[in-house]
């Protein structure tokens, strides 16, 4: 079986606090994998280590065969991340933001224009493409932020709480976008919203206090806990195991 990500005893300490505690996890290529956990469970720290935004204290992870400790530059060229906070250049237009990221990842002008047009089409950004990012609503900004992560054609996309703080309509709109990515690339999603993970994921892992407490498909987690939905399964795993 081809794994997009193989995590081996990955650990991160901040002083005396252990944010991620020797986790092990394999994520299949092309799947949409959700990482669930309460605040401070270690989800964001895990993503930061996998994307080169934090250096592990010990252990390693292999992103399509590249070690995050030994070969982080190769990792950075094949992954991209949309962070919790909307990370856009506020005074640049939507199109300029996309062109900017394409350029940073080394695309020439022709390729950049082609990808920008494709991504604008894919995310329905036509009506706002000439608007400055700072004038967009939260939902549009989040869409742009994900589009900026996708323009580089990453083989693995990390979405850290992509729908946090969005209203229900904007959230559903983003769900459609994320669903559209399924099977095309590997997507790693962290979220607080159980219905989001339930609706979108092929596979789910639950983190508690820096540890992976359970992982598997939705059906496997429901069977493991005897719960009737993911929220109850999550509560059982988080509280009992």
């Amino acid at each position: 079986m081809a794994y997009a990500i193989e995590i081996k005893n990955l650990r991160k300490e901040y002083g005396a606090k252990v944010a991620v505690n020797n986790i092990n996890l394999n994520i299949e290529e092309g799947c949409l994998f959700s990482l669930l956990g309460v605040n401070g469970a270690g989800k964001t720290t895990t993503i930061k280590m996998l994307t080169g935004l934090a250096v592990p204290t010990s252990g390693d992870a292999y992103i399509l065969g590249h070690s995050i400790r030994e070969d982080i530059n190769a990792v950075k060229s094949i992954v991209n991340v949309s962070t919790q906070e909307t990370s856009v250049a506020p005074n640049l237009t939507v199109r300029e933001n996309l062109e900017f990221i394409a350029g940073i990842y080394g695309m020439d002008k022709g390729k950049s224009k082609q990808r920008v047009d494709e991504v604008i089409e894919q995310f329905n950004l036509h009506e706002v493409e000439k608007n400055k990012a700072k004038t967009l609503s939260g939902g549009w900004q989040r869409k742009l932020s994900i589009a900026m992560a996708l323009i580089t054609e990453p083989r693995i996309l990390f979405l850290d709480e992509p729908t946090l703080g969005l209203d229900v309509l904007a959230r559903r709109e983003l769900w459609r976008v994320i669903e559209g990515l399924k099977s095309k690339i590997t997507v790693i999603l962290t979220t607080h919203y159980m219905e989001e993970a339930e609706s979108l994921s092929d596979s789910i892992a639950i983190m508690v206090d820096g540890c992976i407490k359970a992982s598997g498909t939705l059906d496997e987690l429901l069977k493991l806990t005897g719960a009737d939905n993911l929220e109850n399964a999550f509560i059982k795993i988080a509280e009992e195991i």
Partner: peptide
């Protein structure tokens, strides 16, 4: 604005 974080994750 965490734009720098996105760029830290870039090459």
């Amino acid at each position: 604005t965490s734009l720098l974080m996105r760029l830290h994750a870039s090459p």
